[in-house]
Write a protein that binds this DNA or RNA. Structure first.
Lengths: 230, 230
DNA sequence: GCCTCATGTTGATATTTATCAACGATAAGC
DNA sequence: GCTTATCGTTGATAAATATCAACATGAGGC
């Protein structure tokens, strides 16, 4: 594992866009208060219930954010790539992580102390506004998810997550799925057997081609219709 | 309908606690940029999809916050009383209301322009921090709700909303329910027939006494167990 | 007072979804 | 190489939940 930091906030390409509003001094302060670490697939980056001491940014790789329920039942809230801030509401409430984040593949991550982020919020109103905007989008996402989960039936929810993966995560109609069937099920809130059947159904209808880990979306229009109509 | 404002931000008892961090001048500015309005039961205070031009505070009465789905299927996100800020993520994203808010009984509400709130966020870092803390609690609430909705079975969800109403809304073990069975169903994400059966079941077991609009919780411990175990 | 409409309630039934069991395939350990 | 564990897949079954239909109940209009 590489111990030293290999990048610098000043010229971080993979960084969070809101950092751009900070001045040179603030970026230097940020840079001197951060740590990088590497993670192997499956390793936990931070754990639900533990102190929310850091905000995390991926420099490379992908991670899943999930809430752990009773008896192995997890709910995957999001799949993240570099460019997104990984932070829970805990840093402004009870100082605890509301969810676990773990690496899906080889990950390099940047840790910034929560206190440093909160300091930036106090110091720069532009940063505060950017921060609020970011968490507002996150809220919209959760509320929409809440709506889908309660009102859509299984095929609608599966169509929705396939579209989400394609549009917002992989940004392509064909991609290598890093996710097992169990993980897809945890995203859509259903049993793994159910998602297997639905993916097969979609395959038979020609909407998708689903090899074991590769997934290709053939008919986005139809998928959208299924997602819409629940 | 009373047209004039009947209270003043400076000595508002029902106000949002975070306003206390503002100075006298800022409170006066706030006070000169707000409007009060009255609503009858059932009337819409603001509507999903419309511009998120205002942040609302109840001065008296209660309201339901709900997302409208397809074909009369609504999801009640929260029940609010005075002291809470009613604001959606929209003021920091696409300027649209993500949900509808409507009066459950006679309501008097205070409207503050979103721009004014955003200005306060920029002007006062303490206000910004209070604002972020508030929406962070809201996020935790949504995420917990997402978890319950996807992982708990109906009795667990019903137990949960009864406890929520008792602990966080009415702050009593016995209260007049302003909500119809349909509305309770919309809170728990189920059919109204289902909630009728579950409430009856709880009644038979002696956990609650449920007259038509009055509800009394007899056995909070048991209700908690049902809520926990899903 | 009576009628009408909305809401609450109940039972029967259909649909959706999870669980269970079995098996094949694939990858890791010895 | 074999063994073991994990994952994906399938069919059968059970459980959870919604829908439908019917009827009761209660409030408001006239």
């Amino acid at each position: 594992m590489v111990k030293e930091n290999i990048c610098n906030c000043k010229d971080c390409e993979k960084g969070w866009p809101v950092f751009k509003v900070l001045g040179k001094e603030e970026l230097e302060y940020l840079n001197s208060n951060r740590f990088e670490a590497g993670f192997k697939p499956g390793e936990v980056i931070f754990k639900q219930g533990s102190p929310a001491s850091n905000v995390v940014f991926l420099l490379s790789g992908m991670a899943k954010i999930y809430m752990e329920g009773q008896g192995d039942r997890n709910l995957i809230v999001d799949i993240v790539r570099p460019g997104k801030m990984i932070v829970g509401p805990g840093i402004y409430t009870d100082q605890r992580n509301m969810y676990t984040v773990s690496a899906l593949n080889e990950v390099r991550a940047c840790f910034i102390d929560s206190g440093v982020i909160k300091k930036m919020v106090r110091q720069s109103s532009a940063f505060a506004e950017g921060f609020i905007t970011d968490i507002s989008y996150r809220s919209e996402y959760s509320l929409n998810k809440l709506m889908s989960m309660t009102q859509k039936k299984m095929p609608g929810r599966v169509a929705e997550i396939l579209l989400y993966l394609s549009d917002s995560v992989f940004e392509s109609d064909e991609f290598d799925l890093f996710l097992s069937r169990q993980e897809l099920a945890d995203m859509a809130g259903m049993a793994k057997e159910s998602i297997v059947r639905i993916l097969k159904e979609f395959s038979i209808e020609g909407i998708i081609d689903s090899g074991c880990s590769r997934l290709k979306i053939n008919d986005k229009v139809k998928l959208n219709m299924i997602s819409m109509n629940g």
